[in-house]
Design a protein around this nucleic acid. Sequence first.
DNA 1: GAGTGGTCTAGACCACGCT
DNA 2: GCGTGGTCTAGACCACTCA
Lengths: 261, 261
Amino acid sequence: MAKPGAMSRAATAPALDSLDFALDRGSPVPLYYQLARQLEEAIEHGVLAPGNLLGNEIDLSIRLGLSRPTVRQAIQTLVEKGLLVRRRGVGTQVVHSQVKRPLELSSLYDDLEAAGQGPATRVVRNETVPASADVAAALSVPEGAEVMLLERLRLTHGQPVALLCNYLPAGLLALDSDRLESTGLYRMLRTAGITLHSARQTIGARRATAEEAARLDEQEGTAVLTMQRTAFDDTGRPVEYGTHIYRASRYAFDFQLLVRP
Amino acid sequence: MAKPGAMSRAATAPALDSLDFALDRGSPVPLYYQLARQLEEAIEHGVLAPGNLLGNEIDLSIRLGLSRPTVRQAIQTLVEKGLLVRRRGVGTQVVHSQVKRPLELSSLYDDLEAAGQGPATRVVRNETVPASADVAAALSVPEGAEVMLLERLRLTHGQPVALLCNYLPAGLLALDSDRLESTGLYRMLRTAGITLHSARQTIGARRATAEEAARLDEQEGTAVLTMQRTAFDDTGRPVEYGTHIYRASRYAFDFQLLVRP
DNA sequence: GAGTGGTCTAGACCACGCT
DNA sequence: GCGTGGTCTAGACCACTCA
């Protein structure tokens, strides 16, 4: 009982038979997505345990009244999320634990989420300034052109954690400081109709300057994490450039990588 | 002419008409993959310029003698790579530059590639040791159990860049120091039939200890980048745990994120 | 040899963005 | 309204794994 690994590797079609998936053909939500979502929940809730086989796709599609491609599409999204593994001639099984929650890329999402609600943010500066050389290069604007500068201090539990300095092309959107403190930059971009597509990041380390240390409540010379990021929208135009400094004693980048075959 | 953005946004079916894709139905390589590969090359070589529309999927499939789902599958893989963007009612177009080469996740791949050939690696220790508490927890083995310890120094241009300390479950594979210096750990894992599935990483910063500084040719107290990583195989079992230290003055993590809708 | 996922086809209807 | 991608169907054959 207490011995892990004592049971044989994979039970054939375990609790899956008794699972009833509720598919609503009237819903605007795609069927494959409804199925994927419910499979994901079953895995999260442990109804489908790690190592369990899913049963073959054809049976599944018959049982669910779906076509096989639709079922495959549902499974595929979970494979891409790292929750399921497909093997030819074997079947589809739930990944053996470990890989679960913090799937998404993160780093960007960390900040996305965090900016959304959790930690507090204090806007220190919010104004337009002429672009310096590096900012101009990152945003593809002429040097000296007006850009928006946004400087924020992020805190958790009343303690400063990071110093965020962001630059955006002038006139991209209205940056209301109050909304920024409660809503976060990326959410504001999205509601302004700007759909992010990709971002390039560099993470490094160095010692804090006296001013940085003071702002972060640390001693001069402590090690800090640095990050520069340029974010691009759908069309490939840069929409944001940021230079961030994180207090290494209170913050680390934590994320999960999926190895694509 | 020199004015960017002067041309209208997207030419309808530009050079694509004259592109001849060579699809070999006899090849074991899937058709969708052959097509994806050739589209990708066309984009890389600038035959398909950023902003160009691809022409609708149905015409494409007819022209190529493929079914629409197959063409979609090809396009889909490039969308996931960030090279193409699909818009309803508009079409599929090449992403506006910027996003190109260093697409893959990296960090892991950095090291994968780097370990493969580029920089030199010197194996400092290669032996079995009893697992300490943190190692035991990461590898899911009892504390004190034998594990392989691998300590390497990585150099570029004759300069030390990183101190890599890795732990693997005992008996997982034979670790030949010579091969490790020329082939890299991850490549050895793969050739040993171990297929990596995912990894959890934490990137932080701190000041170097005297010993670390000496090994990295730095002064005591410099800021260094730290990374801990646990890698899992297909079945979710941990196969490797690493604690790495990078010289911040010579190394930074550089990667690209794709924002999934 | 039996069973699995991997690929592929030839249609269909719908939702959305544009003009 | 028209054209686009988004979804879905009901089949088919192949390649691989395992007993």
